[in-house]
Design a protein around this nucleic acid. Structure first.
Ligand SMILES: [Mn+2]
Ligand SMILES: [Mn+2]
Ligand SMILES: [Zn+2]
Ligand SMILES: [Zn+2]
Lengths: 124, 124
DNA sequence: CTAACAAATGCGACACAATTGCATTAAAGA
DNA sequence: TCTTTAATGCAATTGTGTCGCATTTGTTAG
């Protein structure tokens, strides 16, 4: 079960670091200058999510997008921030703003997927 | 462009009213005791969303769920509340709690899709 | 009540995202 | 260098949602 270092892993991570925004599998594949199989990219992305290196955002198009995770002090993944999808430039990004919520009694929240849609700073 | 009343429309609405929670197309189809085509149900649901009768939630499984809209005073649809997906009973429901957010300067928000996941009151 | 128009439906095909089984390749430690 | 098994490529598969087109049916005008 120990993870191995592979060119694919590094390439995927590099693309996401450079982009600085959330990306889908096909967007990543386009940016990678290597011929890597679709399924492999998905597997790499899923493993990164399991390991807390990335986090997954599901947008209202039903597609999965992936972005780097900043782990906090406790090495715990935090997906507790809003995401923003721009209707103009079609970019999905992590906002710094935390999701603050209250839920009715006896509900407990394990994780969240919150996407705001509108016009981003670059397109306004 | 004027809408017509059909048995399908009424059946779909009835199912959603009775359920009192968000449902996917296939869940609705199972609950309807009529043989209605998949595409037709989708078209009915889409029309209801256009008309503000329903609103659409995209969960983190990438699927669309539909729930009744309470229109507010101005007859405007409000999807600005949290949704909750229970990991135990697999139910998706509208929470009464509003989504309050702040976004960085020059961002403008048109709509939102916020789903919290965890354990609901019935399952805790 | 009937005819005419167009909205709604059924059916099949399609598009697309994501996953899976299985044979093959290659990373890492001994 | 050898062994182990994680990672990959490929093809097939699953699943959701949409679309074109012929047909049906709700609505309204006459
Ligand atoms: Mn994020
Ligand atoms: Mn809702
Ligand atoms: Zn933008
Ligand atoms: Zn529950």
């Amino acid at each position: 079960m120990k993870r191995r270092n592979t060119p694919t892993k590094e390439a995927v991570l590099e693309v996401l670091k450079t982009a600085g925004k959330a990306m889908s599998q096909d967007a990543i594949e386009q940016e990678i200058h290597m011929d890597i199989n679709r399924a492999t990219i998905y597997r790499v992305l899923n493993r990164f999510c399991e390991d807390g290196v990335l986090h997954r955002i599901v947008a209202d198009d039903g597609k999965q997008y992936f972005a780097l995770s900043d782990k906090n002090d406790n090495n715990k993944v935090s997906d507790n921030h809003f995401h923003f999808k721009c209707l103009a430039c079609d970019t999905i990004e992590c906002l710094p703003n935390e999701v603050s919520f209250t839920v009715p009694n006896a509900y407990s929240v394990a994780h969240m997927n919150c996407v705001l849609t509108g016009i981003c700073k670059d397109c306004s």
